[in-house]
Computed example of a mutant assay.
Amino acid sequence: MRADADDPHYLGHRQRLRERFARNGADGMDDYELLELLLTLVVPRRDVKKLAKDLLTAFGSFADVLAAPQQRLMEFEGIGEIVAVNFRVIAASASRALKSEIRKKPVLSSWAQVIDYCRAAMAFADVEQFRILFLDKGNKLIADEVQQTGTVDHTPVYPREIIKRALEVSATAIILVHNHPSGDPTPSQADIRMTREIVTIARPLGITVHDHIIVGRDGHASLKGLQLM
């Protein structure tokens, strides 16, 4: 469809963005263009190019924008409750799709997808969460549960409760995951001590702790990879 001369200028721009995406997908599109295209689906009657750039400037990345708290998004002119909720739906859908992928095969053979899922689910949260992936004898996912939610820099963790839950779901292995809202995934001394305590309790009961993954905006850290457990 070609925009008429009397149509607002942004209608032709929107059409060109859609055509580029239809031809090539997201390849070759800058983050602000992809975000702009997304905004055109939920903000029908205004130019959203500046809004897309303002959101990226404020939050730092495409993923940060999608994961931003609803009230923070609504501080921007042009973003109301419906738009903000749509962003949350898109972020949740992406996380659900990644989770469905890691359910299909042994977790240890799809480690990159596990990291992608953990980052999508937690890396951009504004408070700490402690998540556990419970695995069966074939290292396939039995359950994925957020055990605790804390503050911006602390989550209470109860090692014996973690192992009790592993026994309840008949897990023979677990992966510990938590996020650092600061963005830096470097493990703290408290993270290391807590991980070692869980390993000590789990081992006599035949439960293997495969890893403790810390995710943040700046990447992820593996305590196993760092030889800290």
Results as ranks from 00 to 15, higher is better:
Val127Phe: 07
Phe76Lys: 07
Thr40Gln: 00
Trp111Phe: 11
Asn179Lys: 15
Ala120Gln: 12
Asn24Tyr: 11
Asp144Thr: 12
Ile102Arg: 10
Ser188His: 13
Ala97Cys: 06
Leu66Thr: 03
Ala123Thr: 06
Ala94Glu: 12
Gln70Met: 12
Lys105Phe: 08
Thr40Pro: 01
Leu38Phe: 15
Asn139Gly: 08
Ala120Gly: 02
Gly60Leu: 04
Leu66Gly: 04
Leu34Asn: 07
Ser170His: 15
Phe59Lys: 12
Arg103Asn: 07
Thr195Ala: 02
Ile192Ser: 01
Met122Ala: 07
Ala190Asp: 09
Ser61Trp: 04
Leu34Arg: 12
Leu41Val: 02
Leu167Thr: 10
Gln129Glu: 12
Leu141Ile: 10
Val89Thr: 06
Ser95Phe: 00
Ala91Cys: 02
Lys105Arg: 14
Arg203Gln: 13
Glu33Ile: 11
Glu168His: 06
Val114Ser: 06
Asn139Ala: 13
His180Ala: 13
Ala143Thr: 02
Ala120Val: 00
Leu167Met: 14
Lys99Ala: 09
Thr186Arg: 09
Arg217Pro: 10
Ile82Met: 09
Gln129Arg: 14
Val146Leu: 04
Gln148Pro: 00
Ala171Arg: 07
His13Cys: 05
His9Thr: 13
Ser95Glu: 15
Arg96Gln: 14
Phe59Tyr: 15
Ala171Gln: 05
Ser93Met: 11
His154Gly: 03
Lys49Arg: 15
Arg193Tyr: 07
Phe134Trp: 13
Ala121Cys: 01
Lys104Asp: 15
Gly225Tyr: 10
Asp64Glu: 14
Asp27Gln: 11
Ser110Leu: 06
Arg72Trp: 03
Asp30Ala: 15
Glu161Arg: 14
Ile214Leu: 15
Leu51Cys: 08
Gln113Glu: 14
Val157Ala: 00
Arg20Val: 04
Arg217His: 13
Ser110Phe: 04
Gly150Lys: 12
Ala26Gly: 02
Ala92Val: 01
Ala166Ile: 05
Ile198Lys: 00
Val157Arg: 00
Glu33His: 06
Leu34Trp: 13
Thr151Ala: 06
Thr57Met: 10
Asp7Tyr: 05
Glu19Phe: 11
Pro159Asn: 13
Tyr32Lys: 05
Val48Phe: 00
Gly150His: 14
Met122His: 10
Arg45Lys: 12
His180Pro: 14
Thr57Tyr: 05
Arg160Ala: 11
Asp4Arg: 15
Arg119Ile: 06
Asp30Met: 13
Phe21Glu: 08
Glu128Ile: 01
Pro185Thr: 10
Gly138Val: 03
Ala97Lys: 14
Ala121Gly: 03
Pro106His: 06
Ala5Lys: 10
Asp211Met: 11
Ala166Gly: 09
Ile142Gly: 00
Leu228Tyr: 00
Ser95Asp: 11
Arg88Ile: 02
Lys164Trp: 01
Arg2Ala: 10
Gln227Glu: 13
Asp126His: 09
Ala202Asp: 02
Thr155Glu: 02
Val127Ala: 06
Val209Leu: 04
Arg196Gln: 15
Lys105Ile: 12
Leu176Phe: 01
Thr195Arg: 00
Ala166Met: 09
Ser93Gly: 10
Pro156Met: 07
Leu226Thr: 07
Thr151Gly: 02
Ile82Lys: 10
